[in-house]
Design a protein around this nucleic acid. Sequence first.
DNA 1: GTCTATACTTGGATAGAC
DNA 2: GTCTATCCAAGTATAGAC
Lengths: 212, 212
Amino acid sequence: MVRTGSARRPDERSADTRRALVEAALDVLRSEGFAGATARTIAGRAGCNQGLVFYHFGSVVDLLLAALDEVSARRRERYESALASVHRASELVELAARIFSEDLDSGDAAVLVEMIAGASSTPGLGAAVKARIDPWSEFAASALHSAFGDAPVLRAVEPAEVAHAVVALYLGLELLSHLDGDRGPALAVFDRALRLAPFMDLLVTKQHEELP
Amino acid sequence: MVRTGSARRPDERSADTRRALVEAALDVLRSEGFAGATARTIAGRAGCNQGLVFYHFGSVVDLLLAALDEVSARRRERYESALASVHRASELVELAARIFSEDLDSGDAAVLVEMIAGASSTPGLGAAVKARIDPWSEFAASALHSAFGDAPVLRAVEPAEVAHAVVALYLGLELLSHLDGDRGPALAVFDRALRLAPFMDLLVTKQHEELP
DNA sequence: GTCTATACTTGGATAGAC
DNA sequence: GTCTATCCAAGTATAGAC
């Protein structure tokens, strides 16, 4: 809760509190995980009474979903502006590697992972989280399409399939990085992708290869 | 708690109860996730008093770690016997694909993911889980070595790096499958790996390629 | 409309019964 | 040695104060 309270209009106060709770929820999801994301812990970090979680969001999971929406909005903005300058396959790989490492550092990836893994504990939460994750697989698929066009590689491997695998790799690397407290191995994978990127362009240009 | 109780020796009863609690813990981790794995829920599913969790294991997390050990033991046994019959790179890919889909079905993969994601919520748990996950990355790396030998591809990409990425992919595919309630996309990725497997052997045989 | 103090529920842990 | 009844802390949610 922002202490500028009484000097502001009621709806501004409300918006301030909501914002503070959402940011605190993200912070707690990052550092304590889904299991540690309780109304008391989140409100404590936001500097406000725990009852406000229920007044403003109805329940803890609804606050967590609002937090997930916030992360999704930020990511969408960042991804889309970055994708505009991508025209070749190698550039897409470079963009993906950069964005993945950013999400690892910011903790956005951790928020996604915690919400997905935590979803099993609350009936109905799975569907709500899925609805918020699906757009990213679709986004990845369309990015693949715009970068690889209708190159023969994309006839050998389904774009949706590659997108699924890439998203899975992204989430898995976050899981391991968080556990190790070390982004090194994940960054090494990104770095490897960067060095292999030029060969992607070859795959797109060279038509009719000997792939199955 | 097994109801054959009074007919058995005390240490057998104790072992029965411990086993029942470990199996129940695995079951709850699979269906309710880490956040839903409470002493009461687990003991309820084991059919015994919740206090027994603390008598036999000291705390809930220690029971969960015992459950993780159980899964690790089962997996080690299965993996190692299967790996014995692997001599070519393509066979390793086939083995990995089969084992991954088995772990997805059995819920073993879900247990790993929930424990990793849940680790952030309890101080010290991260290190304990890491110690139990690390062997699998090493195992994957040594399997890669035995299948690919010192082929040039493994000089272009570090084996430990590939192993890390493969484990990450494995965990990520589980996260998404569980969320979707649909193993289809993950199985499609495995299937794709199977169809690309023959080409792996080519990479091993053909020496000194034009890779960076 | 916004927030706090309080009620109620669930969970972790143990003292003591068997 | 094995287990249960009970205790206290932490969690969710709301009635009512401002």
